[in-house]
Amino acid sequence: MWCMLERVKPPRFRYCEARSVDEALALLAEHGDDAKLLAGGQSLIPMLNLRVARPAVLIDVNRIAELQTVETNGALRIGALVRQRRAERSEPVRAGAPLLGQALRFVGHPAIRTRGTIGGSAAHADPAAEIPCVLSALDAEFELRGGAGARVVGASEFFVTTLTTALAPTELLAAIRIPAPSARARSAFLEIARRHGDFAIAAVAVSVELAEGGAIERARICFANLADVPYRAHAAEKALRGARIDDERAVREAAEAAVGDASPASDLHASARDRLDLAKVLLRRALGAIAAGGSA
């Protein structure tokens, strides 16, 4: 009866739409910790419906045009509010960040990606999510804007811990910059989930730069859901330097080294040990797919 009378799930909040970044920042400055920015809402609104989040004020940024641009000027610059579905179809995004293009089809479902944004997923900082993992693998930079001005932080600084970033309560994420890929870069994104579109039990994002003849000049590897932040596998990256990508022994050794000190959680989907094993398998498969010449 309560539900029929109320016909809503979220707790009461005060709402307004910001029309510009400056207006959003002024509202954040005024309401600070009581306020939450509402971007695509595909994580926040479920949290409101379940009442695990209870912000007093929601500042809707969906109509801020300046956060919705995609630019390529050397690096790819993706406005924080660019929808995942648009990024998935965007030629500049696919050319400037092929790994992101490969990963986006694993992000939720089409109806989620219609609304969900690249910046919203980054700012939500779920360590099981694909977008933070890819942005970490690509050494993305995050443009933060606050009342005191703008600053740029790297991925390792941006992702602090589960659901926590370097963003201050009075700052917003304006854009993400991804360095231009080398012409010799090849990438793959693989994940294991119970059902397509579910959060990954484990996932890997791999980008390698290959010399003539197939030797790896540089590898960048990041796992989702192995730690409280996207887990960069520096040991495996180092182990692969100079190895040929089709050298099965080198790949196997790198995979063994890859999970290093990761201590993933055990939950009903997989034990920590299974996650570590799956991560190694995924890395071997991803490198194998790149060696075979396809994109995974």
């Binding site: 005060r14 910001a18 002024a26 509202l27 306020a35």
Partner: peptide
Amino acid sequence: MSAAQPSD
């Protein structure tokens, strides 16, 4: 233009 004020 003054900023919109949040309201329920």
